[in-house]
Design a protein around this nucleic acid. Structure first.
Lengths: 146, 146
DNA sequence: GGCATATAGTTGTTTGTGCAACTATTCAAA
DNA sequence: TTTGAATAGTTGCACAAACAACTATATGCC
C-alpha cells in the first residue's frame, strides 16, 4: 500500500522544508544579533570540526550532505575569516586536513548555546515524545533517500 | 522546563534540515530525468499558482515563505521559461498579478505525480500515525518561529 | 490639494548549491 | 614499471536566498 497520505498543502511543506528553514533563519538572526559574523552553513562545518578536527574535505562532504565544490567554497570562506586552516596530509598529498583556529574554538560555546535556545523556542509546547517520533521519522526519510 | 532533548548529532540534523534537503534533491532529479526543465523553487511557485492564479507577488511571498527579491527573480526566471506572465493590476498599478501559461498548466499533472512518488519513497516503511505526528510537530515548529 | 507614510516590486551585493569539467595524486593490474 | 581507473580537490556556470537601498504607486491626514 502506498503511503499516500499527503493532502496538498502538507505535501508542499514537507518538500520545501518550511520548518527547518524557519529554524535556520531564526538561528542566523541570533548569530547576527550576537555579533557573530558567520553563516549557518559555515557554522554547520564548524559543528563537525568541533567534534573532530583534522578531517578531510571529503569527510566534511559526507558529514554535512554537501558536494565537494560546496565544501571547497565554505572552507575558502572560513579560511578568509581565519576560522580554519587547510593542512596538506603527509601520507596522501591529495588530501587537505582541516584544522580549527583558536578563534573558532572560542565560538563553540556561544553558538551552541544559541542553537539550543533556538530549538527550545521551536519546540516550545511540543511534548517530548512527539519530538522523539518526529526525529525518528526524519531520520528514516533521510536514510531512505540519501 | 526547557525542551532540551537534543543530543549533538540530532540537533544538527534538525537545524540543517537534512531530510527536506534529501527530499528536494530527489524530486529535482526526477524532474531532470523526466526532461522537465524547472527547479524545485520554481515548482514551488507554480504549486501555489495551480491552486490559485492571478495572485500578486506579495501573496506568493507569504505563501512560499520567501522575501520579495526572491520572488521577483523566481518570477523573472519563470517568465523566461514562458511558464508565467506578469499582468499589471487594473485597480492598483503597484501590483503584478501572476498568471500561468498553457505550458505551465500542462506541467501540473506530471510534476505532482513525481512529488507524490518522491514522498512515497521517503516515507516507505514509516507508519502512517508517525507521519501524522511528524507533520504536526513540523507545523508547530513553523508556527512558533515564523 | 499636498505631503508623509506605507506598500509592491526591483536591483546590487554577498553567500551558498548543484552540476560538469578539470588537475593532481594514488592505486592496482597487466 | 607503466598505464588506466579511482579519488581529492578546484573552477566555471546557472540558479537561489538574504539584506539593503532603491523606484513607483497608493493612502491617509492636515
Amino acid at each position: 500500500m502506498p503511503n499516500n497520505q499527503f493532502k496538498r498543502g502538507e505535501l508542499y511543506s514537507f518538500i520545501t522544508g518550511k520548518a527547518s528553514t524557519a529554524i535556520a533563519r531564526r538561528l542566523q538572526k541570533k548569530f547576527n544579533t550576537a555579533g557573530l559574523n558567520i553563516t549557518i552553513e559555515q557554522w554547520s562545518l564548524l559543528y563537525h570540526l568541533w567534534k573532530q578536527e583534522g578531517i578531510s574535505q571529503q569527510e566534511l562532504c559526507n558529514a554535512t550532505f554537501r558536494d565537494k565544490p560546496s565544501i571547497t567554497r565554505l572552507v575558502d570562506n572560513l579560511e578568509k575569516l581565519n576560522l580554519v586552516k587547510r593542512v596538506a596530509s603527509e601520507s596522501d598529498r591529495r588530501i587537505n586536513l582541516i584544522y580549527l583556529t583558536k578563534q573558532a574554538q572560542k565560538l563553540q560555546e556561544d553558538t551552541m548555546a544559541l542553537a539550543e535556545e533556538t530549538l527550545n523556542e521551536a519546540l516550545e509546547t511540543v511534548p517530548a515524545d512527539k519530538v522523539d517520533i518526529c526525529k525518528e521519522v526524519l531520520q528514516i526519510v533521510y536514510d531512505n533517500l540519501k
